[in-house]
Computed example of a mutant assay.
Amino acid sequence: MTTTAPALDLTADPVALAAALVDVPSVSGDEGVLADAIEHALRTQAPHLEVVRSGAAVLARTNLGRARRVLLAGHIDTVPIADNVPSHRDGDLLYGCGTSDMKAGDAVIAHLAVTLTEPVHDLTVVFYDCEEIEATRNGLGRIERELPDWLRADLAILGEPTDGMVEAGCQGTLRAEVRTIGRRAHSARSWLGDNAIHRAGEVLARLAAYSPRRVDIDGCEYREGLQAVKVTGGVAGNVVPDEAVVTVNFRYAPDRSADTAVAHVREVLDGFDVTVTDLSPGALPGLAAPAAQEFLAATGATPRAKYGWTDVSRFAALGIPAINYGPGDPNLAHTREEHVDVTRITDATEILRRFLTD
Results as ranks from 00 to 15, higher is better:
T2I: 10
A5G: 08
L8G: 09
A20D: 09
L21D: 06
S26G: 07
G32A: 11
V33C: 12
I38Y: 05
E39A: 13
E39H: 11
H40G: 01
V51C: 09
R53S: 09
A57Q: 08
V58K: 02
L59E: 08
R61V: 15
G65P: 05
R66G: 14
R68N: 03
L71K: 05
H75F: 14
I81H: 00
R89T: 04
D90T: 07
G91I: 06
D92T: 14
L93C: 05
G98C: 00
A110I: 01
H111P: 04
A113H: 00
T117I: 11
E118D: 09
H121N: 12
H121V: 02
H121C: 01
L123V: 13
L123K: 00
L123I: 12
T124R: 00
V125G: 02
E132L: 05
N138H: 13
G139Q: 02
L140N: 02
G141L: 10
I143F: 06
W150T: 13
A153P: 11
L155C: 06
L155Q: 08
G159P: 04
E160K: 14
D163R: 11
V166T: 06
A168E: 01
C170M: 02
Q171E: 10
E177D: 14
R179E: 15
I181F: 12
G182E: 04
A185K: 11
A185M: 10
H186S: 03
H186W: 13
R189D: 02
W191R: 11
L192E: 15
I197T: 06
A200F: 12
L207A: 03
L207M: 04
A208V: 05
P212T: 05
R213K: 03
I217N: 03
D218T: 08
C220R: 01
E221C: 15
Y222D: 04
Y222N: 10
E224M: 14
G225N: 12
L226A: 02
V245C: 07
P254R: 01
D255P: 10
T260R: 13
V262H: 03
A263P: 10
V268H: 09
F272Y: 15
D273L: 13
T275A: 13
V276G: 05
A283C: 14
P285F: 08
G286V: 03
L287C: 08
A288T: 12
A289V: 01
P290D: 04
P290N: 03
A291M: 07
F295D: 06
T302Y: 00
P303G: 10
A305M: 12
K306I: 02
Y307R: 13
W309P: 09
T310V: 09
V312T: 15
S313A: 10
S313V: 00
R314E: 00
A316G: 14
I320F: 06
I320N: 00
N324K: 04
Y325A: 07
G328D: 09
D329M: 07
N331F: 04
D341T: 07
T343I: 01
D347W: 14
R353W: 04
F355H: 15
L356K: 04
L356N: 11
D358P: 10
